[in-house]
Design a protein around this nucleic acid. Structure first.
Lengths: 183, 183
DNA sequence: CGCACCATGTAATGCGTTACATGATTTT
DNA sequence: AAAATCATGTAACGCATTACATGGTGCG
């Protein structure tokens, strides 16, 4: 749920909706993302529910900023969420696998085109993690605003992303070979 | 989208909403699932849109069955969907990773409990794929109603599921060790 | 006797996306 | 001169979940 992600980020310090969007895009985006519009509406609702507070910070030459900060109720909810174990795995949805499941009747070349494109996309995303995201984390490191545990947890989710993409590419390579010889 | 999954299954032959739910649970559920209620409402909408047709099959001692079959418009839509390549990766959402991202402040033992539980769940799901789902596919094999290509594609999605769970368990093992020594 | 299975659906709510709406400043 | 960035939001729509509602059959 977006609410928890926003509480998590706001626990590091006050931020605007705009900044939250950017921060998410540069960190959790490969396992949690949201559109600008959803962030704004969710923050508004969270304020009504007393989880966060906002203050308008006037600016010249730039639109005014609405800066949100977490308040005690929000902090309590974040803590509760973090402490509660996930008792069940969420069922995933992977459109590409669904397509493959039903693709026996697809023309060989059409299928190979799709598989190679998909391979390319996962390859690129894997590289993106190794470069951009890793870089982003080390920037926060140098800022010295976060402790070693934070960096460990951020790094570990990044590792997950890399391994996931590597596994995906391997699987696609195997499937491409299978289709080339068996279709 | 559920619509495509339903069209895919109905392309194998007519089925009721109830049977579609069961079939999905026993095959695509680890990359595409739906609740009974959603299946019924979606089928209804698809019939209004002219993608499928339904006929009521009266039964004694059992509630009447509403049997759906795919019609030409549905077949065309399925074909179109299968032939169109996915140009972008869908952004995933993985609640557990989000939690880990913000878990630096969580108590060591609480965190380890969560990690071990999660490891257990993924381990079990991996086994489930190796047993139940694989078995399900070989049943369809013996029925002789599907060709070699179908079985190849079904098997390959199953392989994906197994590798995914194996990767997940490995990652959790590494993280557990990291937390044990560094927290 | 109780539980699982067969079999269908509707209503309310929640989460998320797309489209709409504005407009100045800074970078290429 | 055009595009990206800064900065905010609302409205309509779509997909999915949860809860509600019903009731007979078969098995242990």
């Amino acid at each position: 749920m977006l609410k928890h992600a926003l509480l998590g980020f706001l626990s590091y310090g006050p931020m605007t909706g705009y900044e939250l969007k950017q921060t998410m895009d540069g960190s959790t985006s490969y396992f949690w993302h949201a559109k600008q519009s959803q962030i704004y509406t969710t923050l508004k609702r969270m304020e009504q529910d007393g989880l966060v507070a906002s203050e308008i910070e006037p600016q010249e030459k730039r639109p005014d900023r609405r800066v949100y900060s977490i308040n005690p109720a929000g902090q309590a909810m974040l803590r509760e969420w973090l402490d509660a174990p996930l008792l069940e795995l969420d069922q995933r949805k992977e459109l590409f696998l669904l397509k493959m499941f039903f693709s026996a009747s697809v023309n060989k070349e059409t299928l190979l085109t799709q598989l190679r494109l998909q391979r390319d996309l996962h390859q690129k995303r894997g590289e993106h993690y190794r470069n951009d995201v890793a870089n982003n984390i080390s920037v926060h490191d140098r800022e010295g605003m976060h402790n070693a545990k934070d960096l460990l947890m951020w790094g570990t989710t990044l590792t997950f992303g890399q391994r996931y993409e590597a596994m995906y590419v391997d699987w696609l390579d195997d499937l491409i070979e299978l289709v080339e010889t068996n279709f």
